[in-house]
Amino acid sequence: MSDTSIQSAAEASNRVRRKPKKLQLLTTLSGRQTMILGLIGMGAFFGLWEIAHLMTAEEAKRFLPSPISVVQALTALIQEKNFMADVGISAYRIFGSFFIACVIAVPLGILMGCFAPIRALINPVISGARYLPAASFIPLLLVWFGPTDSQKMALLILGVVFFLIALILDNTEAVATELVEAAQTMGASRWEIMVNVVGRAASPAIVDSMRNMIAVAYTYLVIAEIVAAQDGIGAVMMRAGRFLKVDVIMAGILAIGIMGVLTDIVFRAAAYYAFPWNRKRQG
């Protein structure tokens, strides 16, 4: 073999190397890059929406309003229809019911994860209940509570609590056995281990589960506020629907989307500051 063949092989590999592929496995982006790509993605979404609006026949345009007119509808709602009060009521229903769901699910999930008999007792009921569509409880809840806030919050709770328990059970079971055994050999009590070892170890995963399940709670919001509701974002959208005000319906969707994104950010920030020990190591 001559030198030239070696050289050409080296050149060939150089040629490959000079053009780094954009989509490499296992790469990370800086915060700035992530934000720019995110903005591009959002821009593309609204751009496609605008194009779709422009391409819609003139007489059908009111059924697919442009993004700008949806934003205008949202500001008009806020300024003229006291929409923030409805947002407040919806937020109260979401957060209130989610708080109650957590108060039930966190201790129960951890208890089930720690003690096999409790798990064996409760798990069949929980697993079964997850398959029941929450909306099917609406007639029952209306009979029990009437068209009240309690009825709507009960629906939101039913929609998430069983999933939340199942997720927290998983989070708890995922805690390394060695951590529990190490605590046992140190003479820690069962209560101490449940709260300060298993609970602490599982807490970042539990907050993650909560973050995912509150997103599900948002998906139930409109269902809860469509039936027998005078106030809340869902009720506003239902009323707009009756008058075919598509821009107002979309403004409602947009409002829920914004609330959802803000909720997600709050959960992520809370996890970041509450669990400094769990932060991913920065490269």
């Binding site: 390394a176 190490a182 140190m186 170890a201 669990f275």
Partner: peptide, 14 residues
Amino acid sequence: RGMIFQAYTSFPWL
């Protein structure tokens, strides 16, 4: 009877 495990058992949150 103190025990040291092969797996790391130092508590990550402390």
